[in-house]
Amino acid sequence: MVFATWWRRDPLPTLSPLPSVSAHLSTDAQLIAQLTNFSLQTITTRFQAGKRLYLAFMSDVPVAYGWVATREGRISDLQLTFALPARNCYLHGFLTLPEWRGRGIYSHFLQSIIRQEPSFDRFWIGYLPNNTASGRGISKAGFHVVSDLVVTGDRACGLTLFESSERALASVDVFHLPVVAAP
């Protein structure tokens, strides 16, 4: 899994206008369950763990969702759980509904979340290397790709750093993994 980050002092690139796109926090468990196919119990557990759910809308139609972890991040498939340092958050579980893909919604959605979360200075997000659409949307939103998970079997065991920047080195502190390879 490739990781990217955006820091509060970074500029947000100007995106092509999408005037009818908006994003809002939601606590509407019924709507969230309908969109995500998660049980009400799973949604409640996530909220209790300090996670927030954002919904993106085109006009009044929900078209995408994504979670913001504020205390702890988790990548279940790789048995990785990590406590988030103060003023850091982890964006995960994003999905644009199939009929709305290819319109540039994702980049607008990410920038909207950044603007609505002033208490965080560093935003982290991951994506699978073969998910080029996600990687493209994350980069267009202004995130910098900095590291990649090293996986052995079904466990994350380290990080490959793509650069020797402050951001890449900070990914070690966020994900609590050793550097396996660096530039």
Results as ranks from 00 to 15, higher is better:
7 W>T: 08
25 L>V: 07
3 F>P: 00
81 T>C: 10
92 H>A: 11
140 K>D: 08
33 A>W: 14
36 T>I: 12
67 W>V: 11
16 S>L: 05
42 T>L: 15
94 F>Y: 02
61 V>M: 13
52 R>H: 12
7 W>L: 10
169 L>N: 09
39 S>T: 15
138 I>Y: 06
2 V>Q: 11
147 S>V: 02
183 P>L: 03
57 F>Y: 15
16 S>P: 13
159 L>I: 00
39 S>E: 12
126 G>K: 04
117 E>K: 13
97 L>K: 07
32 I>R: 13
141 A>Y: 03
101 R>F: 02
135 G>W: 09
44 T>G: 10
51 K>M: 11
116 Q>I: 08
67 W>L: 13
174 V>M: 05
88 N>G: 03
90 Y>P: 03
171 S>F: 06
94 F>A: 07
150 V>M: 11
127 Y>R: 06
62 P>E: 05
114 I>P: 01
165 S>G: 04
109 F>D: 00
90 Y>F: 15
182 A>E: 07
161 L>Q: 04
124 W>P: 01
165 S>F: 02
107 S>W: 08
175 F>G: 01
33 A>L: 13
174 V>P: 04
136 R>T: 06
26 S>H: 06
13 P>C: 10
142 G>P: 09
166 E>Q: 10
74 R>E: 14
114 I>F: 14
86 A>E: 14
65 Y>T: 05
13 P>Q: 12
182 A>W: 00
1 M>A: 11
37 N>F: 14
37 N>H: 15
137 G>I: 05
60 D>R: 15
150 V>H: 01
160 T>M: 04
56 A>F: 01
81 T>K: 14
87 R>D: 08
152 T>N: 12
176 H>V: 12
110 L>T: 01
182 A>C: 05
161 L>M: 06
101 R>Q: 14
61 V>F: 10
38 F>H: 14
104 G>D: 02
177 L>D: 01
131 N>F: 07
169 L>S: 02
183 P>D: 02
150 V>E: 11
97 L>T: 02
149 L>T: 03
163 E>L: 03
167 R>A: 13
97 L>A: 05
108 H>E: 00
164 S>A: 08
107 S>F: 03
119 S>E: 15
138 I>E: 09
91 L>S: 02
183 P>H: 07
